[in-house]
Design a protein around this nucleic acid. Structure first.
Lengths: 144, 144
DNA sequence: CATAATTTTGCAACGTTGTTGCAAAATTAC
DNA sequence: GTAATTTTGCAACAACGTTGCAAAATTATG
């Protein structure tokens, strides 16, 4: 595992690739994503960050990352919005979110099961699929 | 198709089965569910109803229906909350939402594809699934 | 069917969440 | 290092959702 310095450099490179200025807020938020292996929601960023950022800045930063394809949203059945970092094959113009999200009913975490395949779903005639979102809920490995 | 009188009676019976008082609000909201073949969100109820109901009443009515297993929520990637009527096999204590939801990118509607099967998903070791939610987005039959 | 007990509704007030405009601060380009 | 650009934080606002309480409607009872 790289040390803190290396992570910061990787993040800076990622931001530059997306033609974004390298700022403290963006770096800190991306660090949080990389540290956590689960999905984060808005309130996490205001709490978890050592220094707390303005709400507005967090909203705008997440929106920017969404626009650039750096993160994606995970479906929920309530009003919360959860985010996770995208796999490398996601770009600004095309998303490949064809992986399974798992929500643990015990610890509340949502994680991406990147290596779990989504089987083909046979839709009725006349329906064309662009994207498939799967959220499995149950008990995760750690809580078992 | 039954006439209006018959629908009203069916709704009254459904409410009584769930040990709920038969009120104008609840009847009207269930009528809206039955007329629309898609998923509804909160704002629909305040707008669509001929007589408009108080926001609070709508929130509480939907929560009651959720508790009783009459409706269920459909996952979304934004802050909106969408509801659909449950199939008969849903009860107060156990839900069977194992059907596919389809969100049309053209008309914006979300519908339940009750007859579309969800294939078995092979989870990594240590994960136990309780419920699977699938939301497919694309273009629906009517918008094709 | 009239009255009592219970449930539901609407209002007011409040808290949370998300958005917009604008000036100050930080970052990048030169 | 300085100018141009981008990002941030503040203030104010709008939308969404919740809670307590009194009035109204529904259901239960004699």
């Amino acid at each position: 595992m790289g040390n803190k310095q290396q992570i910061t450099e990787r993040i800076a490179a990622l931001l530059k690739d997306s033609k974004l200025s390298v700022t403290e807020t963006r770096t800190k938020i991306l660090e949080l994503f990389m540290k956590s292996n689960g999905a984060l929601e808005h309130s996490d960023f205001e709490k978890l960050a050592g220094k707390s950022f303005d709400r507005v800045t967090v909203y705008r930063t997440l929106q920017t990352f969404l626009d650039k394809g750096i993160i994606h949203r995970i479906p929920t059945t309530d009003t919360s919005v959860r985010y996770a970092v995208c796999k490398s094959e996601c770009t600004e113009h095309h998303h490949h979110d064809h992986h399974v999200h798992f929500k643990c009913e015990a610890c509340g975490n949502t994680i991406c099961l990147d290596d779990t395949n989504i089987p083909e779903i046979q839709l009725p005639k006349g329906f064309a699929a662009n994207n498939v979102e799967v959220v499995v809920s149950g008990v995760c490995k750690s809580c078992k």
